[in-house]
Design a protein around this nucleic acid. Structure first.
Lengths: 207, 207
DNA sequence: GCTTTTACTAGAATATTATTCTAGTTAAGA
DNA sequence: TCTTAACTAGAATAATATTCTAGTAAAAGC
């Protein structure tokens, strides 16, 4: 096995992670203000004080920026959700926590939430593979928290691919509409609304 | 009031509506195969045997094509839904009809459904105004069918902006995932699934 | 500490794509 | 029948994304 073309890998510099994060933050500001299709590489450059060369060095192309931002957002959401769910113990509290966290996170991260809502598919095969893996991992963690409640009979046993739509579907659609009505950072979602959707979710999956 | 710059308006030719429809159909095929961001004007030209001049004459720009396709799709969906809902009479049947129609329409119009799911905001102010008006009209028609059931106590009285998320949110999220798993035109959504979501919707809004 | 190498920055050059412009054809409507 | 606006066509241009070349600077090995 000839080992030509060998090129030592080297760790990225200390400052790199922070720089990439700041580029993603700038890109998000652009997406939020100018729309995703509306923002150009040049817009992102101005917003982040970054050269084209650097942008392409870090992310490959424009789509790479969008993908990375999406993945980071999903991971931030997932991590928060898992942490939140682990704090409650009963089936009812856990189901309701899903809904409440969804509302709170959305209100606290509007631009990012808007971005996650607006983009879907359309990513490169590589990015979709990463997303699939992240999603699988997340779903496993969440389901692990709920299986006991299903086995004990507190929650209905349903096809696995229906729990997420049944529990999160309504809040998701509600927040989507809420976000597109809002532009700035006005009020948050009222307690009554949160509880309405939390109750509805529980009503559907409880036995 | 000086009336310069006057230019007689004239009705479009008979063939125009059909031509525009065929362009939209071709654009949809492109969007479905190449992705929305992935399709170029040149792709649409090849698919529709249309010159750039004609494309821009009919739709103004690329975004105009996307907007028109979106609006046509929404209207087709809304018309079908209203027609379907008028065929049932009881509160339960009507609520369940919403869910069933959602599934059936999605399975029958996959490419269009995928497109409607993937795009959101990002449209011109003019297109958003048109969409708002269409949506308002639709919501009024739907609510007119349901108010009696609320007044008679068969259905819960809830904030107006929660009915759509509560009833359609779950199927919507389910079909969105279903569509992104599917690419061609395989099987349809099983009767059991449809009924599961129909029952869930009814359970949430019934008194 | 010195050297080498690779991560990183920068922006000019190029390629790709969207849009506009100019010149016709064709059919509505007077 | 004539005029004119709707429509078609594609070349010319503008906007934008991406690549290329030339550096600078900090890891990692000596």
């Amino acid at each position: 096995m000839s080992n030509k073309n060998e090129q030592q890998k080297r760790a990225p510099r200390e400052t790199t992670a922070a720089r990439q994060a700041s580029i993603l933050a700038g890109a998000l500001r652009c997406f939020d203000e100018l729309g995703i299709d509306g923002t150009t590489i040049s817009d992102i450059q101005k917003e982040t004080k970054c050269s084209v060369g650097s942008l392409y060095h870090h992310f490959g192309n424009k789509e790479g920026i969008a993908e990375e931002l999406f993945i980071e957002g999903i991971q931030q959401f997932n991590t928060g959700m898992i942490r939140k769910l682990k704090r409650s113990t009963t089936a009812e509290e856990r189901v309701k926590s899903v809904v409440r966290f969804y509302c709170d996170w959305t209100a606290r991260n509007r631009a990012l939430a808007r971005y996650l809502h607006s983009r879907n598919i359309e990513f490169s095969e590589e990015a979709r593979a990463r997303l699939r893996q992240i999603h699988e991992l997340y779903i496993n963690q969440v389901f692990q928290l709920f299986t006991d409640h299903v086995l004990s009979g507190e929650m209905r046993a349903l096809p696995l691919d229906t729990y997420v739509p049944l529990i999160s579907g309504p809040v998701q659609e509600f927040t989507r509409r809420w976000l597109s009505g809002q532009s700035g950072s006005g009020s948050s979602i009222s307690r009554e609304m949160k509880e309405l959707f939390a109750d509805a979710a529980w009503k559907v999956v409880k036995t």
